[in-house]
Amino acid sequence: MRPAAGDGDTQTPSRKVAVVSGGSRGLGRTLVERLLADGWRVATFSRRANEFTTAMSEAHPDDFHWEQADLGEPEAMRAFARTVGRRFGRTDLLVNNAGMLHQELLLTTPSKRIDSLITNNLTAPILLTQACARLMTRHGGNIINISSINAIRGFRGVSVYAAAKAGLDGFSRSLARELGAFNIRVNSIVPGFFDSDMTADVTERNRERIQHRTPLGRLGTADEIADAILFLTSARAHFVTGQSIVIDGGITC
């Protein structure tokens, strides 16, 4: 019987390697912390280092890797994956977490901004996935794409962002078909509104409106989104692939 997807080397679980894009803050930071605590080796990138990435490098010199990379430069994704392969020798988990949100009506959005939104939220994750999946074909793996409820529910001023995230969901489903034969699972997590850098600028009035429209009556937390992601990495999710799992407190129901 072949090993379950995402298990990696079951004899030495500490050798499991996770790649998390945008792991310097927000949800990415939460995932880095929790994966390290669970015994994973973790590689991540962001546009610049900060106190967190420096602290993790010092605390986990053998198990944590950070380097500077920008989603806006898609070729950097392939270079980052090559570096991870050289340092850790494998990749068992990829979480495409990093992204960029810009709110503006389509009629006034410059073409360069449109290109940037598509590159950051769709093209770069696809290229990073391609590079990491090539490593995963040797032993199986797990790919989790972080989408958004904007992909399934229309909101004013985010049409290009929504298009990119909807593309990421479609990419996940089709890729699950392609990679299943290699024992690689592919799913997407579709978060609703939760406390993060992207919602930090939401006015108190709009926050109250969101909470009022949410059946559970509040915004989510990064840990609650991370719970769903970590479930997909666990033994309880070995038969789950090609799915988009909505974690939104019920706002889209």
Rank of each mutant, 00 (worst) to 15 (best):
A163M: 10
G170I: 09
I146E: 06
R205Y: 14
F182L: 08
I143G: 07
I210V: 13
L127Y: 13
A163H: 08
S148I: 02
R138G: 13
Q211C: 11
T137W: 00
K165H: 14
G154C: 10
I146H: 09
L122Q: 06
D201L: 10
N150K: 07
T214H: 08
I210S: 07
I146L: 12
G192M: 03
N121M: 05
R138F: 09
G167H: 12
S188M: 01
N150H: 13
R213K: 14
Q130A: 05
E208G: 14
G192F: 00
L175H: 02
R185N: 06
I149W: 07
A162N: 03
N145I: 03
F155T: 13
R205L: 14
I184H: 03
E208D: 14
M136Y: 05
D195R: 10
V202E: 10
A166G: 15
E208A: 15
R185T: 04
L175Q: 00
G180H: 11
R207P: 07
D169I: 06
F193I: 01
V160D: 00
Y161A: 07
S174Q: 14
G192P: 02
P125G: 13
M198L: 10
G157D: 01
G141C: 08
L168R: 01
G141V: 07
A162D: 02
A162H: 01
H212Y: 12
G157R: 00
T123Q: 09
R138M: 06
A131V: 04
C132R: 05
I184F: 00
I118K: 04
T203N: 09
V202L: 07
R207C: 03
A163Y: 03
N150G: 15
F182P: 08
P125Q: 13
V160L: 07
R173T: 01
N121E: 01
G154Q: 10
M136Q: 12
R177F: 11
R185L: 07
G157Y: 04
R156F: 12
N183Y: 06
A181C: 09
M198R: 09
Y161M: 12
G180T: 07
N150R: 10
I210Y: 09
Q130K: 12
A166F: 06
G157K: 00
V158D: 04
S159E: 05
A133W: 10
R173K: 01
E208K: 10
L179H: 05
D201E: 11
